[in-house]
Design a protein around this nucleic acid. Structure first.
Length: 485
RNA sequence: GCGGAAGUAGCUCAUUUGGUAGAGCACAACCUUGCCAAGGUUGGGGUGGCCGGUUCGAGCCCGGUCUUCCGCUCCA
């Protein structure tokens, strides 16, 4: 649509200047791809979480929430495939910039070599296995260079060092290093739901179809983390796993695609800013998958994924834990006139990146307006959040400090603050205070003046239109509350 | 990871052949002020990203390093 070019840098500096998002460890030169949420960012984040939780858990009688630990038994990540699929030594060709898995590169070369010299090819492969098992990266590189293995694209042998890219962060559990076990910081919240599937199903007497929702931190050691809070090493996910009877996954997949895009529209974001991206190449666990992409300042990018994960995860956990992950379905199968009986449910996953959702709402809300008149140059920066996700809902501003206006303002403050976040401000000219509130995205400002003392009316000022209206002070709270629904 | 650009006060930026930093805004106090930023007075705030080198002397030159942004690449 619009002016995407330089919008991201403006958003980043606005976020810093107005207390939304700071770079982590800034006074120590920062920590790459890690960010902290400041006083207003944390409110925005909380409001988006609440909007999601409300729509998923409160609005669906068959969905409940959990909060599983970040630390989990290391075997969980073997079962999920994260250990094996994402810890291979890699090497880059410096000319083509193409990245290869070292074992694939060598195996491919050995295959060709075996045509002319099978013995040497076998010797080479067994040497490779030996080096791989010892994590001898220097040895692997020497092997590649010794045989002058080249890149298919550049046909050169100009390689970087062999490096291991671990997706997962490791840490040690236990007080003594020697006795400690390596565990991982979870790279997704989903597995915490899968391993609690039966706990929740049994204690909550859940009947299929049902869902388990969770909001929580996840950690990925991204090789290239970029784009402000778009791709962070520590981030937060809002995931829901929906357990269904095998054979019904297609219709539930469609249901959730539809339900989730509606949630996005309810944030007040126009449909034209979204598109679905259906995956052609599916991951090993999925039988259908799509992304909801939002038109970020840097282009359409994934904000949420909806995946039909089959029964892969529960089956894997059944295999690795040796605990049955069956659900007994009492419903009558019309085909046989008997209950459906025991099965491992299929799963539809909805997974939205909370930080990406925040960047999305910031991108959508951030507006620079030129308010210049022939007499005077003027502009303002506004965050046009929907009221329900705005950090501050109402600013209460006595026109002057004196003459008891502050006291009246405090009265209104005390009346409203149990219900939503209010901000009291008596410094500076009224116009300046309005603009400051615009920059924070506060939808309503109320000004208390001398007339308030006489007839108990106040001026309410609307952020987007900048229009003002005189209303009884007693109606302010209701008016704001109405806007929050 | 590769290529490009940048880093001076909270923010936006100056200091034009290297001579121990300045403005506006913001902030604090007081005065003034009746509804859409930038009224007055006073004040606080910088070991010029960090480390090292050249030099009598470095914000400025050289090397390294960290961080960010842009493009490319990758993404279960």
């Amino acid at each position: 649509m619009s002016n995407s070019e330089n919008k991201l840098p403006s958003i980043i500096s606005h976020c810093k200047e107005y207390g939304f998002i700071f770079q982590s460890s800034e006074i120590y030169d920062g920590l790459s791809a890690v960010y902290d949420y400041g006083q207003w960012g944390v409110e925005l984040k909380k409001n988006i979480k609440d909007a999601w939780w409300r729509s998923m858990v409160y609005m669906h009688e068959n969905i409940v929430g959990i909060d599983s630990a970040i630390f989990m038994h290391p075997t969980i990540w073997k079962a999920s495939g994260h250990v094996d699929n994402f810890s291979d030594p890699m090497i880059d060709n410096k000319d083509s910039k193409k990245r290869y898995r070292v074992d694939h590169l060598i195996e491919q070369f050995a295959e060709q070599l075996s045509i002319t010299n099978p013995d040497e090819a076998n010797a080479m492969l067994s040497l490779m296995e030996n080096l791989l098992s010892k994590d001898d990266f220097t040895g692997l590189k020497n092997l590649i260079e010794k045989y002058k293995i080249t890149c298919n694209i550049s046909n050169t042998c100009n390689w970087t060092d062999v490096r291991q890219f671990n997706l997962m962060f490791e840490t040690k559990l236990g007080s003594l290093a020697e006795e400690s076990d390596t565990i991982y910081l979870r790279p997704e919240t989903a597995q915490g739901i899968f391993v609690n599937f039966l706990n929740v199903q049994k204690t909550g007497r859940m009947k299929i179809p049902f869902g388990i929702a969770q909001i929580g931190k996840a950690f990925r050691n991204e090789i290239v983390a970029r784009g402000f809070i778009f791709r962070m090493r520590e981030f937060e996910q809002m995931e829901m796993q929906f357990f269904v009877r095998p054979g019904t996954q297609k219709e539930w997949y469609e249901y959730w695609k539809n339900a989730r895009i509606k949630w996005h529209y309810e944030l007040g974001i126009p449909p034209a800013q979204y598109r679905f991206h259906d995956h052609q190449k599916l991951a090993h666990y999925a039988d259908a998958a799509c992304d909801i992409e939002y038109n970020f300042p840097m282009g359409f990018k994934e904000v949420e994924g909806i995946h039909s994960r089959t029964n892969f995860d529960l089956t894997q956990h059944q295999t690795f834990s040796k605990k049955k992950q069956f659900y007994f379905d009492n419903d009558i199968d019309p085909a046989t006139n008997k209950p459906y009986g025991n099965y491992i449910p299929y799963v539809i996953e909805t997974s939205i990146g909370l930080d990406r959702a925040i960047l999305m709402t910031l991108s959508e809300a951030y507006t620079e307006e030129d308010l210049s008149t022939p007499e005077k140059q003027d502009s303002r920066a506004v965050l046009k959040f929907p009221a329900k996700i705005a950090p501050i809902k109402l600013a209460i501003l006595p026109l002057m400090k004196k003459d008891g206006l502050a006291e009246l303002a405090k009265e209104l403050m005390n009346d409203c603050k149990p219900h939503f976040l209010c901000y009291y401000e008596e410094k500076d000219s009224i116009g300046k205070r309005y603009r400051r509130m615009d920059a924070l995205g506060t939808p309503f400002c109320v000004t208390i003046d001398h007339q308030t003392k006489e007839d108990n009316t106040v001026t309410i000022r609307y952020r987007d239109s900048m229009e003002q209206e005189r209303i009884p002070m007693s109606e302010v709270k209701e008016k704001v509350l109405n806007a929050l629904n």
